[in-house]
């Protein structure tokens, strides 16, 4: 098992898949300002993807590039958490998904800045500045919608109920995560849960939203054992050009 490769793949696939999802809003957001803001976030995430998948490719040492990993793997090779691949739904669902991810991402990157692996620390150092802004924005919007009108409240509450069972996956270690933690590459995932729960509880209370009580957690994305049906559909969009015109560049 190549721990660094697997770890970088998981970090990279999270931001690749979520970045693509967010980019699907481009030209469709409810107002111009949000459209541009979402596109900016998507671009930040795709930029981070280049760094993580570049590292994953180098660690694998097979001469592949970040682009090869992004565009020439199929659904079962992806290692993103399931939350990232879930459909956009309405604007509230997109921003709730974004907040639930951003809140984890910020804590994770904070730990990774002191990774024993120099390149990991460097990527985290760069990404954390972008992500600090992402979480500020998604948090404010979730609060605005939750503590907004009757309709916006109902919609983001429904989004929270739907998405929350996908949060647990970020905190469950398997062999790869344990090896990464032992090598000092990454923190123990379970150790991030306390800070995450605290941040999310505070945001939801400000947003007048109720966190689901069930502890049930979907899993299978980070290990690649089982993705949702949505990932394959997304990849047909994301990868069609390289599939139809192999090796095309511009």
């Amino acid at each position: 098992m190549n721990t660094l490769h697997e770890f970088a793949l998981r970090m990279g696939d999270n931001v690749l898949v979520l970045g693509h999802r967010v980019s699907e809003w481009c030209g469709h957001a409810p107002v111009l300002e949000e459209d541009i803001a979402l596109a900016n976030s998507a671009l930040d995430l795709i930029g981070q993807t280049q760094l993580w998948l570049g590292l994953a490719a180098d660690a694998e040492g097979s001469g592949k590039s970040a682009d090869d990993l992004a565009f020439l793997r199929d659904a079962w090779d992806f290692r993103n958490a399931l939350l990232c691949e879930l459909p956009n739904g309405d604007f509230g669902q997109t921003l709730m998904r974004q907040y639930l991810f951003d809140a984890w991402h910020l804590i994770m990157l904070g730990k990774l800045t002191s990774s024993s692996e120099e390149r990991v620390a460097e990527i985290a150092d760069k990404a954390i500045k972008e992500v600090s802004y992402h979480v500020e924005r998604s948090r404010d919007t979730v609060i605005g919608l939750g503590d907004g009108t009757e309709e916006s409240h109902a919609r983001v509450q429904a989004a929270l109920d739907y998405l929350y069972p996908y949060v647990g996956e970020f905190f469950v270690s398997d062999k790869v995560d344990e090896a990464a933690a032992r090598a000092g590459i990454a923190p123990r995932l379970e150790d991030l849960r306390g800070a995450y729960d605290l941040a999310v509880a505070e945001t939801m209370s400000e947003a007048t939203l109720k966190l689901p009580e069930s502890e049930f957690a979907h899993k299978g994305g980070r290990t690649g054992s089982m993705h949702t049906e949505h990932l394959g559909h997304m990849l047909t969009q994301m990868q069609w050009l390289q599939r139809a015109y192999p090796g095309a560049t511009w």
């Binding site: 107002v31 111009l32 300002e33 541009i36 803001a37 900016n40 802004y133 500020e136 924005r137 404010d140 605005g144």
Partner: peptide, 20 residues
């Protein structure tokens, strides 16, 4: 100019629209 629900969001939107 831009639209925003409050001053804080206006700053954020300005950051996203005008300082890219």
């Amino acid at each position: 100019s831009l639209h925003a629900p409050d001053a804080e969001m206006a700053i954020k939107n300005a950051r996203d629209v005008y300082t890219r």
